[in-house]
Design a protein around this nucleic acid. Structure first.
Lengths: 116, 116
DNA sequence: CCATTGGATTGACATCCATCGATGTATTGA
DNA sequence: TCAATACATCGATGGATGTCAATCCAATGG
């Protein structure tokens, strides 16, 4: 389901404010942040994450977006490792990946208050 | 220094995965995420946040970007409430706003593991 | 085998955005 | 007053992105 299954989008453990990020670190972290930096994707993710699992057919109506648009956004969220989809019968069921979200929160957290 | 000083970009305490975000909540949160969803801005922020304070003149060289580009990015980070600038003499000194980063991390963290 | 349905893909379009050269503005120092 | 400097702003440009209509594909059910 994910377009790039082998691609490692795992976020490293280093908090943003701990040291100056390298170009590579910034690139990887920005990719995951970009996946959430859209109101529609953020709502899609919150709907998926706040439930056990949900199929795409239940996303169009509350978000008032077309089916291709929903498909486009779920694809991006999956590519970022934030959700995973499983095709059962005719429907695709989406689940959130809590580990990736927690890793993102950790990466953004201050290691310790900047000593002033 | 911040282009929209009165604009409230403060992130609410509600984690993304706790409930389905409203359009307004998603809009506000996505705006802050978008500010960090760029490799150059992420590196700028990490440089600023990992030091006490720093002036813009020390950002161009390590990032290999032009002065207008750096100014453009610092403006966006400031608009998102992630950094604040203070003009002292000829230089503008930038400091990170830890509260906003912590608030972002909180908003993204899982409130509690989804009960299966 | 065929109609239906969930949903991915394609193509097109409009918009946003990162980037930089050129220029403007304010401050410093001579 | 004038040159130099730090930085903001403007205008242009190329690339990325959100959106949807049209289409294609796969699975279901008759």
């Amino acid at each position: 389901m994910a377009p790039e299954p082998g691609r490692s989008e795992r976020i490293c453990c280093a908090p943003v404010a701990d040291h100056a990020l390298s170009a590579g670190e910034a690139h990887d972290l920005a990719a995951v942040l970009a996946a959430l930096a859209d109101p529609v994707r953020l709502r899609i993710f919150s709907i998926i994450a706040s439930q056990e699992e949900i199929c795409s057919c239940n996303l169009e109506e509350p978000l008032d977006k077309s089916q291709p648009t929903i498909s486009h956004h779920t694809r991006k969220l999956a590519a970022a490792g934030l959700i995973v989809g499983e095709k059962r019968g005719r429907w695709t069921w989406w689940r959130a990946v809590p580990e990736q979200l927690v890793a993102l929160g950790t990466a953004l957290s201050l290691a310790e208050p900047v000593e002033g």
